[in-house]
Design a binder for these strands. Structure first.
Length: 672
DNA sequence: AGCACGCCGACT
DNA sequence: GTCGGCGTGCTC
């Protein structure tokens, strides 16, 4: 077979003498049933260049397409006549066996296609970079001092394990005020000193800059490679190649770096894993935490899932015993934390000062800010983003209103002009809820939760007329502010680091953050609060935080007591009770009604599968039909793999294919 | 997705 | 008799 002359061979070509069959992953966005390699013949002139992992050009359905050569074999199972490998773009073996295995694991985990994952994992080629990218690693760096890790229980032994090459895995809660970039840099340098590679992934560019500064300080400019999304294509590919060739021991970056082909991975870390930016917004939507846990597992590497806050997913890693906790003693936490005060909207003790009244500031907040400014320190004012999102909560206890059938979020179907009141409906299963009863307090009253109102912050300037007000937000983000009296008004996530720490932080509109119509509203609010509060001086140095939210709420209590682990544990238990990820695995399938129907007919779903919906997405026509709808399928965690597999298979059946593609997302937290 | 092969109505 | 409708199936 292998020696036969293939079709379309105009010039006479001879197949390579050894292993002439190339298994090729074609890189074309095609339906799921083509998610498999195809065999081609290697002509003898390409024999030496056509190495496993290299990029090739092949003829597929008559057209020349890009692909990756996965392996060379003696024979093929294909019955027909093989085509030739037309060209080897470069003998650089970019798709290494390890990367291929990772991409396969990720594709399987998310029910996606291998080629899609490979497309995320390997940056576009740039020929010049192949010449200029370094090949040799620098000398081993010295092992860094790590006294700062001694503030955490088992911190020293964790670093010891990293140095010894053991697969220690930890959920890390950074102390308030912690210089987390330096701690992560120390852990990475510890792995590098032992001759192993390290990979740290952070949410955004600002975090990356801080981390890079910390790594450079410890390892020198050439000791660390930063893979940032905003690099020019040639620089991006050159740095990626340096990693691939083993010239870089410590690799840092934003989410695309989760696939970086680090050699001998000994340590991996994800910082602030609750940040949505860790969710890759392209099919199959992999998450940094998932990919790094997978990689740490496969490579036997150490892992840190860290942040000031803790996600329910991290709590599950700890509670399942897969990872252990890396936390400080309570006395150290108390010593490092600012004093936190919660002011609910009901204790409406507005300040007597007329200016503060105009800013709608309670007296506690006003006094905290004034005393910090008086002490010469800047004050942070965190204001939730603007916008209006319809959502419903219990009219009495303010618990989010959930569907009694599937626990999906209740909302008022909006957009109708006739003004006739419509009953609340579930955004998942579509069931109307005419007789709401709060599962928490039994109340039958519903209230709307509105998101918005950043005006308060603008009015602050009047309350403190002699203090400069600076803003930091989406448009322009301040990296740092000096230790001088100033009001720093910012949206969550854009908080500048203050030299010497803020004297106080005012966390405004807590209710707005908590009332967002998302599964993770409370977790996210707490994460954003911790991130801001961690920039404030310890209580012993006068540091104060005032959060405008009801002190009886659990996330608020967690902030007051500075106990992220406690809240994450509660959150995980609640998700388990309601049947949400990570306690259970949930898939969201979007598509036109025919395609959804075809999937339901043909999919061989796992035994515990619970099908919710479909519900219309977007505009609904006069007959109540929608162009697109969303189906929710949830299963026990143990069947997550089976769910991904059956959804992958179902997309390949002809009927579903005909009705155009379906979009499948696993554990799409931001959609719930 | 494209593109070929394939079995039934109106034309030269 | 033939040209061509786009249903079904394949792509190494």
């Amino acid at each position: 077979m292998a020696g036969a002359q293939p079709k379309g061979a105009t010039a006479k070509r001879t197949a390579a003498a050894n292993r002439p069959v190339a298994r090729v992953l074609v890189d074309v966005p095609l339906p799921v049933h083509l998610d498999r390699p195809f065999d081609y013949l290697v002509p003898d002139r390409l024999d030496t260049d056509a190495v496993p992992g290299c990029r090739v050009r092949v003829r597929f359905r008559g057209k020349l397409v890009d692909g990756y050569l996965l392996e060379r074999n003696e024979t093929t199972d294909f019955q027909g006549t093989l085509s030739w490998v037309e060209r080897v773009l470069s003998p650089e073996p970019v798709l290494t066996p390890e990367l291929l295995e990772l991409a396969r694991a990720v594709a399987t985990r998310y029910g996606g296609m291998l080629a899609d994952v490979v497309r995320l994992a390997i940056p576009p080629r740039h020929a010049g970079a192949e010449k200029s990218a370094p090949r040799e690693p620098g000398p081993l760096p010295p092992r860094p001092a790590a006294e700062a890790w001694a503030r955490y229980q088992h911190g020293t032994s964790f670093l010891e394990a990293v140095h010894a090459g053991r697969s220690a895995r930890a959920v890390w809660q950074a102390l308030p005020g912690e210089n987390w970039p330096s701690r992560l840099a120390e852990a990475a340098a510890t792995a590098a000193a032992a001759g192993r590679g390290a990979l740290i992934v952070v949410p955004d560019h600002r975090d990356l800059q801080r981390l890079q500064d910390a790594c450079t300080g410890l390892l020198g400019k050439d000791g660390v490679v930063a893979l940032a999304a905003d690099l020019a294509p040639s620089a991006r590919y050159r740095r990626w190649l340096a990693v691939l060739r083993g010239a870089a021991r410590v690799v840092i970056g934003t989410r695309a770096a989760m696939f970086a082909p680090v050699h001998h991975l000994g340590f991996a870390a994800v910082w602030d894993d609750g940040d949505d930016l860790h969710s890759y917004p392209q099919v199959p939507y992999p998450h940094t935490r998932d990919v790094l846990t997978q990689r740490a597992h496969a490579a036997g590497a150490a892992l840190i899932v860290g942040g000031f806050a803790r996600t329910a997913e991290a709590a599950l890693l700890a509670e399942s015993g897969w990872a252990h906790e890396l936390v400080a003693h309570r006395t150290d936490v108390r010593a490092a934390a600012p004093r936190v005060t919660a002011i609910g909207e009901d204790d409406n003790q507005l300040a007597r000062d007329p200016a503060a009244r105009a800013a709608r500031l309670p007296s506690v907040a006003f006094e905290a800010a004034r005393s910090a400014l008086g002490a010469g320190a800047p004050v942070l004012v965190q204001v939730p983003r603007r916008g209006y999102v319809p959502a419903l909560a219990c009219g009495d206890c303010r618990e989010r209103a959930r569907c009694r059938r599937c626990a999906g979020p209740l909302a008022l179907p909006g957009g109708n002009e006739d003004g006739a009141p419509k009953p609340a409906a579930c955004r998942w299963c579509g069931a109307a809820e005419a007789a709401f009863k709060c599962s928490s307090c039994g109340s039958r009253r519903l209230r709307a939760v509105a998101v918005g109102a950043s005006r308060t912050a603008e009015e602050l300037g009047r309350a403190f007329s002699n203090v400069p007000v600076r803003t930091s937000g989406a448009g322009e983000i301040l990296p740092t502010v000096p230790a001088k009296p100033a009001l720093i008004v910012c949206t969550p996530g854009a908080e500048p680091v203050a030299e010497g720490g803020y004297g106080a932080a005012l966390l405004l509109d807590g209710r707005t953050l908590l009332g967002r119509p998302e599964l993770r509203a409370a977790e996210t609010a707490l994460r954003l609060w911790f991130a801001a509060a961690a920039l404030v001086r310890p209580a012993g140095e006068g540091g104060r935080v005032v959060v405008m939210a009801d002190s009886s709420l659990q996330p608020v209590q967690a902030l007051v007591r500075w106990d992220p682990a406690w809240f994450a544990s509660l959150e995980l238990a609640e998700r388990a009770q309601l049947g949400f990820p990570p306690a259970r695995r949930v898939a969201a399938v979007d598509g036109i009604p025919e395609a959804i129907e075809a999937l339901l007919d043909s999919a061989d779903l796992p035994a515990t599968a619970e099908v919710l919906g479909p519900v219309p997405l977007g505009e609904v026509d006069e007959d109540g039909n929608s162009e697109r709808e969303r189906l929710i399928v949830r299963v026990e965690r143990s069947e997550g793999r089976a769910l991904a597999g059956s959804l992958h298979a179902a997309q390949a059946v002809r009927a579903a294919r005909k009705a155009a593609e379906l979009q499948v997302r696993l554990d799409p937290l931001e959609l719930l």
